[in-house]
């Protein structure tokens, strides 16, 4: 539903985005990852039409991005902000109307969401009287109120306690089930693994990695296993099968991290081990998004 083609954005002496392209499919939860200052916010600002790219284009539902699309996009910026002196209800209504909702429709939806997120009593309160977490909730409602097709969330869980973070997570998943597409910018990799279908990793103004989370993880499998056993295993004669990366003894058991040689399967390994030792555990080490992130970003930073 959203394609970004060869976007370049140049600030005075700094190139914020260098030939970045990516695809977000309908109904996906798409993770936009990258270290601080990589250019994520610049890209989001281009998609939300806050700024325009120097070159390249954004295609939204088959059309070049234009101001008609504003009503179909919801954006929760990382730097949260509301009018401090304004009453909550009035404020959310105002933001919804700016997105093109009629007063009646906006009122109905604000009431629905306030009820749903147990904010009913906040209507006449001023923003400055709310806690930070409560303000976040208000802002989340303002972001999704106009039922946008594309919802862009920048660090949506920051400032929430675990209970409320869970509430918001469930709302995101429900909206996703109803058909909303999400772009999700965050540093918290565990939430990426939990929620995202696809990701793109931006680093130093360039996209260095993208694809489905499952595919990326598959790609980062490197035939590494944890093996736990007791009994004696010769330290030689297995080079054609695996290499030992790490070895430690825990109580009576030995735990090893091993990497299988290319073309060797776990079955072949088991076949080799069965007559020699008692096997307690053999499982594959799967790279977390966190590992992948660090691996991709670290070398070039030094």
């Amino acid at each position: 539903m959203l394609s970004v083609h060869n976007i370049v954005k140049q600030y005075a002496s700094h190139r914020a985005l260098n030939d970045v392209s990516l695809e977000v499919a309908q109904g996906q939860i798409f993770g936009l990852l990258g270290p601080n200052g990589a250019g994520k916010t610049s890209l989001i600002r281009i998609i939300t039409q806050i700024t325009a790219p120097d070159s390249g284009e954004v295609i939204f539902n088959g059309q070049r991005l234009n101001s008609d699309h504003i009503a179909q996009i919801g954006y929760l910026p990382e730097e949260r902000g509301l009018y401090k002196k304004m009453e909550i209800g009035e404020q959310v209504l105002y933001l919804a109307k700016l997105k093109g909702l009629s007063t009646a429709e906006a009122t109905k939806r604000v009431k629905y969401w306030f009820e749903k997120l147990e904010m009913g009593s906040w209507w006449n309160k001023k923003v400055e009287d709310l806690s930070k977490g409560m303000q976040q909730k208000v802002q989340f409602v303002a972001t999704v109120l106009h039922q946008p097709e594309l919802i862009i969330l920048d660090e949506p869980f920051s400032g929430f306690d675990p209970v409320n973070a869970d509430v918001i997570k469930n709302e995101i998943l429900e909206l996703n089930r109803q058909g909303a597409t999400f772009i999700f910018s965050t540093h918290r990799m565990e939430s990426v693994e939990e929620l995202c279908d696809s990701i793109a990793l931006i680093h130093q103004s360039k996209k260095i990695l993208d694809g489905k989370v499952a595919d990326i993880k598959e790609e980062y499998r490197n035939n590494t296993y944890w093996l736990e056993y007791d009994g004696s295993l010769s330290s030689e004669g297995h080079e054609t099968l695996y290499q030992v990366i790490k070895k430690e003894e825990i109580r009576n058991k030995i735990r090893m991290k091993i990497q299988l040689q290319p073309n060797v399967t776990a079955n072949q390994l088991l076949y080799y081990l069965l007559p020699l030792v008692n096997i307690h555990r053999l499982d594959e080490v799967i790279a977390t998004m966190n590992d992948i992130f660090i691996e991709k970003v670290k070398p070039s930073q030094n």
């Binding site: 600002r45 939300t48 039409q49 806050i50 101001s67 954006y75 910026p77 949260r80 009018y83």
Partner: peptide, 17 residues
């Protein structure tokens, strides 16, 4: 300045010019 410091500006600018 109020809109800028309270950071509502980004929400606003994603809705209006």
């Amino acid at each position: 300045i109020e809109e800028k410091t309270s950071r509502i500006i980004e929400v606003m600018i994603s809705s209006v010019k």
